[in-house]
Nucleic acid binder design. Structure first.
Lengths: 200, 200
DNA sequence: CCGGCTCGATTGACAATCCAGTCAACACTC
DNA sequence: GAGTGTTGACTGGATTGTCAATCGAGCCGG
């Protein structure tokens, strides 16, 4: 049964796909490139995945849910509202540090292909906003955050800021450096988000 | 000479391409789809553009430069710093209102393509950030904005917020409505950006 | 222990499909 | 007639997905 199957080849293919997609983009990557990168025969990809699209889908589904779990974790954590946002921001930035290729695929390929992939992806994508929105409502309820701002727009603003910074790293218009820098960037982003850029 | 050529067919093709790309995505759109949408023969696209890629490039080059002009305009305008950001934000949101398909192509296709196309648009893409960064420095210099925040990160945060909200409209995870709503959304985004979400 | 069998994993050549780009021929205008 | 604009059938290349054949591991019986 598929469930009890050793998972090595499947993961091997996914990891190879992440590399290949990051290097060439999804549309310029062939299934044969993935097979080659994985060191397996071409047809074996189809043994594990229905088609090329399902490879990309699986990358998204499995990795995005990890991100959702992180938001949930920090949302429940006994830390300040500011620390929650900072931690999530840092997690995403540091994910680029640890897995640049994966983040590239997520940012460049999946986020922008969502409209054309199966509908279920939009729902999963949207779950992140709902969780962040919930976190903002939490912050509003406990008095940390203003109650007169739409939580939904705020969630989009927050995640959008991070996403475009990550895009900047991917496109090399921003210089990515080391963990300390990412921590500082996360603090800056959250600083602007919570305290604002305006002079007091 | 190309310069003195009637521009109708070329613009016709670009407009058709915007529709087709928005509907199917660049990679799932064929040159023949564009030709059909434009009501011309297939080969004529190649009379006006080198290849499919150049169609997309031209859409970006010509429309992005219009956006850059708008930033420049508002940057020089005799209005407050807050009004400048609000106006730019509103311009982008309202562009979605006026030209949803074009904004879709810009948001979903261009950034993704930038890394992989021969004719890289990264420099042009980056110009928007430089202009916004300049505007933030202006605001810092005149005392409207904090001097202790990286203007580059702030520019990315600002534009990222807008970009993801627009993506939300495109993917229908956010409901786009009318001009009044866009004005309010612009004000909210800039409100959070300048005043912060934190309770004072 | 060994050999045979079964079944799942693996292989990669190949057929079918798709689509970008070409270009000779035609149409139109001055 | 010359020059520019337009046409769309066709070619060739690229790629996906298929599938028959092979391989390898594990099990069972002698």
């Amino acid at each position: 049964m598929a469930q009890s199957q050793p998972i090595d080849k499947r993961t091997l293919i996914l990891d190879a796909a992440i590399k290949v997609f990051a290097k060439n983009g999804y549309h310029r990557s062939r299934v044969s490139d993935i097979a080659e990168e994985a060191g397996i025969a071409y047809g074996l990809v189809y043994h594990y995945f229905k088609n090329k699209e399902e490879v990309l889908s699986s990358i998204f589904r499995e990795r995005w849910s990890a991100f959702l779990d992180v938001i949930r974790l920090y949302r429940e954590a006994p830390i300040t509202t500011r620390e929650k946002f900072t931690s999530i921001c840092f997690y995403l930035l540091n994910s680029y540090n640890l897995r640049p290729e994966l983040m590239e695929v997520l940012i460049l390929e999946i986020a922008r292909s969502s409209k054309f992939l199966q509908d279920s992806h939009i729902e999963e994508f949207n779950e992140a906003f709902r969780l962040l929105e919930g976190m903002i409502r939490d912050g509003q309820a406990c008095g940390d955050l203003r109650a007169d701002v739409d939580p939904s727009l705020s969630a989009y603003s927050f995640l959008g800021a991070i996403e475009l910074i990550l895009t900047g790293y991917v496109l090399n218009t921003l210089k990515a450096r080391d963990v300390k820098t990412y921590q500082k960037v996360a603090e800056t982003v959250v600083d602007v988000f919570i305290d604002g850029l305006g002079k007091r």
